[in-house]
Design a protein around this nucleic acid. Structure first.
Lengths: 247, 247
DNA sequence: CTGTGTGGTTGACTTGGATCAAGCTTACGT
DNA sequence: ACGTAAGCTTGATCCAAGTCAACCACACAG
């Protein structure tokens, strides 16, 4: 009977999109919450949205009123200079938060663009603040997430400020690999969601340099590359590359 | 009468070091708090400490339990790679907060070193969290401060990732100038607290490159440099330098 | 299956900033 | 007043990564 089926589908959809049933809850904002606290968070995370590949989740200058948790998919954030130069400030995957930059001025300061068809949960910020005044664990975890973002940024500065091209790319691959692992995917076999140009922008390199470094890693047997398909053959080799050369 | 004088001195000292009487309160954590809320914050900010030039306020790996507000002086934060490479991640002046990186893992992830004799206020973090559960304004302002740090970091990434040497240095000088202005100092005449090497580390350049860029700016009449003494003669000129050349 | 466009690779060459080296300036301890 | 060390400047040279250019590999629309 069609009506029943339809009802069931709706119910299933609701269950699936609740934090309490989300398989990312150990990576995402709900980390460490009790069952009861989780239920309250479910009420807060009201809006889910699909963002198609290439679409903007938000734009620099746009008004800020929510942060976003990625349910599935892959994003980049970037900042544009008036003259058109782009700096990719990060790549975000499922379980990670987007939009923390907007709290400061109540306007977003960067663009968030889906690199593949994605799904996000919108978390109204003022409600998150009021709930985190009541749930200590949530407050503390949110602070940790913001702090982790600062630490990550310092890592990128280190990368850009002191490392040479091959070190940067090795660090980038190892970081991706580690994040895929945390999500239950292979640490050694994955597809890049971003172009060479986007990697280059993130790493402060030109796309040709990224391409050459990939080729070099392949020649040396550290990885196998076929367009966006990466297989890591020698983790230790990549790690050695990273700590190798003083600039 | 000596005893009275001494009493008066002590009283004065206490008043001076309270947030409610600190002339940095419009730049620092107390921003936007009511008189009554400010009094409560005073209780929280219990410890003041002097940090001499060259001393560490905290070290990477050390336990985190407080964030620090700078009352006076000047700091740098840096991250060290095993092989000794240093990345300066920021320079901090009066009214700015230090230690936000430590929230994430409950251990500091960078070093904070005084570049001149300084005074700091220690703010025990768990107490800050509990107070910000009660004082909405404090909570919101603290979130803004953390977010601002993330935005600042994105700016540094832009600098390191897409700008050439002279653009980086121009951006650096304009940023310093603007922060000195906010503190009531001259925007156009100041002393650098850091060495060329530290500037270089922050900007991803070698000290010789920094020195040459200073000389070039002087030749072109944008600034006057004499060792650490900088006078900005042509703000517009520096701004023009910043947006000028695609890499 | 074929044309077209986007993205990736590779080569030749150029260049901005690093490296190496020498000399200068300033601050400070004796 | 002088010696020493730390920090800064400047020049000569080198090299990693950028630039320019040609070509290749898919993906996908018709």
């Amino acid at each position: 009977m069609p009506p029943e089926k339809s009802t069931q589908e709706i119910t299933l959809a609701v269950i699936q999109t609740a934090c309490s049933n989300c398989n990312l809850r150990e990576l995402c904002l709900p980390l460490g919450l009790s069952e009861e606290e989780l239920d309250r968070l479910d009420d807060l995370v009201s809006t889910r949205r699909r963002v198609k590949r290439g679409e903007y989740l938000y734009r620099a200058g746009g008004e800020f009123d929510a942060i976003y948790a990625i349910r599935s998919g892959f994003f980049k954030t970037d900042v544009l200079l008036e003259d058109g130069r782009e700096q990719v400030t990060g790549f975000q995957m499922a379980g990670e938060l987007l939009g923390l930059d907007g709290i400061s001025t109540e306007h977003h300061t960067c663009n968030a663009i889906a690199l593949e068809d994605s799904e996000i949960c919108a978390i109204p910020f003022s409600q998150l603040e009021s709930m985190s005044r009541e749930i200590h664990t949530l407050q503390h975890h949110f602070h940790k997430v913001m702090s982790r973002e600062i630490v990550r940024d310092h890592g990128v500065m280190m990368l850009l400020g002191t490392m040479r091209a091959e070190e940067r790319l090795a660090a980038f691959l190892l970081n991706l690999s580690q994040r895929f692992t945390a999500r239950g995917y292979s640490h050694a076999d994955f597809f890049l969601r971003m172009t060479r140009e986007e990697i280059g922008s993130y790493l402060g390199l030109k796309l040709e340099t990224v391409s050459r470094a990939f080729s070099r890693f392949q020649e040396e047997g550290h990885i196998a590359v076929q367009q966006k398909h990466i297989r890591i053959l020698n983790v230790a080799g990549l790690k050695a590359l990273m700590n190798h050369q003083p600039i």
